[in-house]
Structures are given as structure tokens and as C-alpha cells.
Write a protein that binds this DNA or RNA. Structure first.
Lengths: 339, 339
DNA sequence: CTGAAAGCGCTTACAG
DNA sequence: CTGAAAGCGCTTACAG
């Protein structure tokens, strides 16, 4: 690659000192209009762009970068989340360094180290479950916000979803309709949302006086394909579940695909009970009634970024970790009724 | 925020010169093991992380950053694309600066300028249609790769989809089945994919000896909601279309939602013909047969990143813009047959 | 094997 | 209003 022109190149081209170029670029009014014009002309002629890294190095202020580590951008939920983060970041003139962890703590650790090395002003992380690397993080140096999930014992801000109540409401809706053998499909137990949603699920059973079946509780499904396999196994049990509760997008999709296959083969008797966390596209095309426990993922992103910016603006000495909880809403979809 | 420790802090703490710290951090073998240990201990004690920006500034090599500007991460297609880019970037030790343009050229322009200012080694852009700012880009300084869409007259690498043939095949499938009034829903005409897919669509009509209807050709739908409105307008025509061709994910979703509403209301007679670019989740739950023109979005991302890395490694003097075209495949979905 | 000096591209602080 | 000097945090190039 050809070397990019520097501020000194512009100064030479314009016949002024580097300081004058710097001043013009900074928009200072204290430069003769005549020189300003010269500088602008040279900038355009050389295609000069100020090196922001060098600039921030000298200024010692923020880099204007936020590091975002999410588990999987492939899940539309997280895409929404990122959009919310970007929205707030952009309005404050900041950009996003983005990386995915694929639920791999090792990768998450490297990503965070790398982000910090690149001088991000703060980190927004959807933690994948590991703890060690997060304990090494220094929130007094680089503020950290957990989005959607949290990790116990790490001093960081967090934007969470009201998982327990959401799951309670979703599961209760199924139990109220008479379902007694509700399968639970969740993430790995090291993920806080999975634990919290299971908690709400179990509380709902307790309050309904229904004994949950251990063998129907399956944690660890990461992708839609894995969830589909788990759902197929459950459906093949001697006593299959009469309802499904899924803690996210990917698990719901897996359940629906498993059910869809049975349905198409004419081997599904009666509509199953369905309660899922998170909305998804084409939900109106699902033939069976569904209860969706929804919340605004973009808002979770916005709040995460807002918390981070607040932390950055705050006095380090008085800062204490804050946690925000986003409420969920129950959405009753009738199903298109042809089942 | 508390100041982060610097290399000099580590040196003082360890009682060595900054150079020794630098050498240890660089993994040099020419440092006494004893001093190496001291340095590592100080690094751990202070929570020191090397400032990559300062490092790159001195080294004058690449920043290890790739700027990615996509139109809308909300569209799962682009999420896949980003995943492909990240995959290749990560393997070469690079990270992603990500921003969305929302099809706004002004925003795209600011994003690209900002990325260049932040010393990205290269840019991968899904262009939103504007040209001016791209003409100011200097590929000899910062290599540029267009992904999925291209812009005429800008010297850049490009990874495109075989839009013309894909659209030709999709439209031909509809015409072969006897559809004669095929609606076309595409992006704005300034978007290359939209133009190219329309071209294939029209060629298919020409070869089939069918006159396309101008009033059924609707360009400009950006979001699923907009597309749904357009589809509803088309369906309300005195002579509504008997088939729909959509050039992307968002337009397909809009068409399906419009049809779904009619269907649920019992006001849809006979299954409409459907041919769509791009796959989408829950496609098996659509009751009507569909032809999907699919390709591997992640591969488009991977190829874009690969082209960029090749360009970076190449001799600037001999570089010429390269363009790769990814083939499409026709997927015939039967529909679940209950319509 | 170790370190003092200089410089990457900028801006701050000081002179004039 | 303009500029020469110094420094941000690091590494290169030169000494020893």
C-alpha cells in the first residue's frame, strides 16, 4: 500500500507549519481565512485524513471505540441488540469494535484482551459463561457492561431481562391450559438467562402444584439444529411432552422444525402447547397457538450503551455497579388454526 | 476513569528499562529469564495491557482493523455476511469495526471516513447506492471491497452474486408454471442487485414470450413493513398479480405477511406463485409452494475478506480490481400443502 | 543481554 | 494569528 499522507505532508504542501494545519482541522477560528483555504485545498489534493489513533494517543482522552462481544450475531436477537448499541454509540460519536464468541469463553477472553489493547473506552459483553478472564478485567480501567446475561461476582453494570417473571408467566400460561408434561429447552447452565428462566419455569410449576419432570428439562442447546435434535429425542420418548418451553430464539426454531416434520408426516396428534422466549419472523405462519415472552432487544442494547456512557462520564471514585431489568410481555398468538 | 498503566510503569515496577519490557512483551528470547519473570509479574500486578494503537503508530504496519459497513444488520442475510468476514479476519488476527448505514449514503460516507481515520487496513462495504463519497475513496491508500452489491466506476474489488441468472431462473420457474402476472419487489434502483435482478426477471419474460407488466414492478422497498404495504397495494389492484418475485429477505417477508393476512381472512383464492431471493427461517411453515434462489451469504463474506487480504498482501503497483461472482441455486419448497 | 536516543502522527503548552 | 518544542506509548536502530 502507498503511504497515506500525514499532517506534515499537508503542511509542506500548503506552505504552513504543522500547527496551522492542526488548528484548521480542529476548526479553530484563530487562523487567517487565507491560510485556512490553503490548508483545505492541500487536504483535498492529497486525500489527507487525520490519523485518529495518533490524535487520541496525544490527547489521552477516549478513543471513541466501544468493544462489543456477543455470542452469535447469527441469532436475530443479538443483531437487534447490536443495532441498539450502535444507535446510542453513534449519537455520542463512538464506533463499535465487534466480535462474536460463539459461546466460547477462550475466544471471549482473547476478544476482550484485544479490545482493551485497542484502547476501547468500554466493553459490552454477552458473557458466554466463563469467569476467569472476566475477573482479570479491570472495570476501573475499562468499564464493562453485561448485556442480557450476567456473571455473578464480577463488578460490572448489567442490563438484564426479567427472566424469572417472564418464564414464570410463560410456563404458567401452559399449565393453566392443562399441560402437565412441559419440556424445557435452554442454554447451558453456566448461562445466567438459562438458570433464571429455569427458575421461573420451576416456580410456575410449584405454584400450579405440578411436579416438573426432570427428564424433560434439557439444558445445553446452542443452535437451532441442536435444539431440533433434542426436541426430536423428547418427542420419541415413550411418554413425550405435551408442551414445549424454549428459552430463546434458536431453541424455539429447533422445536418448531421438529414439530413441523412430525406434522407434515401426519404423526402429530393435537396441537402441542408452546411457550417461547423472544419473537421471531413468520411467527404468524405457525399453525399452533403460541405464547411468546417478548421484550425489546434493541432497547436492551440501547440501555447497555447508555449505562456504559454514564459510567464513562461518572466519577470513578463514586461509581457502583448498576443493574437494569427490562420487563417482558406475554404475546398470545392464536396459530393459523389449520392444525 | 483511572489511568491505565503504561509500559514505563511496568518498567519502573520491575526495575528494568522500558526496552526490556518491550522485548519481553514481544517474546524476544534475548532477555535473561530472571528479568522476563520480573516483567511478567509486574504486568500481572499492574494489569498492564499493551497499547496497540501506540504500537501500530510506531511500527507503521497495519492496524489489524477492517472496517465493515453494511446496510442493515437486522437482515439475517447481512448478519451471515458479517460472520463470514469475521471468520476470515479472525484467522488473520484482525478485528472488525462495524457500522450500519441503513441505506443512507450520507451515513455511509461518514462511516467510511471515520474508519479510514481510525487506520483500518481495508474496507468491506455493502454500498447503499451513493457514489460521490466512494469516488473520493483512495483504494491505493485503503483497499475497498464491495460485498453483494457493487458501484459502477469505482475501482474496487467486488464479491457479487450471480444476480442475473438467479433472477432469470427464479422468474422462469414461475412463468413455466403458467403465471403471467408476476409482481416484482426490489430495492431502490440505485442498488446494483436490484437492477441486476430486474434484468434477469425481464430476460426470463422475454425468453418466455410474456410481456411483463410495468405496474407490477415495484422498486424501493427497504424494510419488510414497506414491502408488506407494497404487496397489499398490489393485491388490492383490480387485476392483482398471480405471482410474486422478491429480490431479498425483507421483501419476501413483506409479501408473505401480506398474503398471510389475506389467507387468514379467507380472501385468498388459490396459491400464489412465489419466487424469492435468499433463504429464511421457518420457510417450511409457509403453506404455498415457493422457489428460493439461494446462495451462501457467509461465503460472500469470507470471499470479501479474502479478496481484501489478498489485496493487502499484493504489490500495490500491479494490483487490478478483481470481481468474484457467487453462483445461486434454485430450491423448490413444496409448501405444507394445507392451503 | 541491556539501554539511551530518536521517531511514528498528532496536540498541548509555551513563546512571540 | 503563527510556530518551535515537547510528549502521548510504544518500537526501531544504534551503542555498549
Amino acid at each position: 500500500m502507498k503511504q497515506s499522507p500525514t499532517l506534515v505532508d499537508v503542511a509542506k504542501h500548503a506552505g504552513v507549519s504543522p500547527m496551522t494545519v492542526s488548528r484548521v482541522l480542529a476548526g479553530s477560528a484563530h487562523v487567517r481565512p487565507e491560510l485556512q483555504e490553503k490548508v483545505h485545498a492541500s487536504v483535498a489534493a492529497l486525500g489527507y485524513r487525520r490519523n485518529e489513533n495518533a490524535r487520541h494517543l496525544r490527547q489521552g482522552k477516549g478513543s471513541g471505540l466501544i468493544g462489543v462481544a456477543i455470542t452469535n450475531i447469527d441469532n436475530p436477537y443479538y443483531a437487534e441488540l447490536v443495532l441498539g448499541i450502535e444507535d446510542v454509540a453513534r449519537q455520542s460519536g463512538r464506533r463499535l469494535l465487534l466480535g462474536t464468541t460463539q459461546e466460547d469463553s477462550e475466544r471471549e477472553s482473547r476478544l476482550i484482551d484485544d479490545f482493551i489493547g485497542r484502547q476501547v473506552e468500554g466493553l459490552i459483553v454477552v458473557p458466554s459463561g466463563g469467569r476467569g478472564h472476566l475477573r482479570r478485567a479491570r472495570p476501573e480501567q475499562t468499564p464493562l457492561v453485561f448485556a442480557s446475561r450476567t456473571v455473578a461476582g464480577i463488578p460490572a453494570d448489567a442490563v438484564l431481562v426479567d427472566d424469572v417473571n417472564g418464564a414464570y408467566d410463560g410456563a404458567t400460561a401452559l399449565l393453566t391450559r392443562g399441560h402437565r408434561r412441559v419440556a424445557f429447552l435452554g442454554n447451558s447452565e453456566s448461562v445466567s438467562t438459562s438458570r433464571r428462566r429455569l427458575e421461573g419455569f420451576l416456580l410456575a410449576h410449584e405454584d400450579a402444584g405440578v411436579e416438573p419432570e426432570q427428564q424433560l428439562i434439557r439444558l445445553g442447546g446452542q443452535t437451532a439444529d441442536q435444539a431440533q435434535q433434542i426436541a426430536e429425542q423428547l418427542l420419541a420418548l415413550p411418554e413425550p411432552p405435551d408442551a414445549f418451553f424454549a428459552t430463546n430464539n434458536r431453541n424455539s426454531l429447533g422445536v418448531l422444525n421438529a414439530l413441523g416434520a412430525l406434522y407434515a408426516a401426519g404423526r402429530l396428534d393435537g396441537p402441542p402447547g408452546l411457550a417461547f422466549f423472544d419473537h421471531f419472523e413468520l411467527s404468524d405462519f405457525v399453525p399452533w397457538p403460541m405464547v411468546l415472552v417478548v421484550h425489546d432487544a434493541r432497547e436492551v442494547g440501547r440501555l447497555s450503551a447508555q449505562l456504559l456512557l454514564d459510567h464513562l462520564a461518572a466519577d470513578a471514585a463514586t461509581w457502583l455497579p448498576r443493574s437494569v431489568q427490562v420487563p417482558t410481555t406475554l404475546l398470545h398468538l392464536p396459530g393459523h388454526g389449520l392444525a
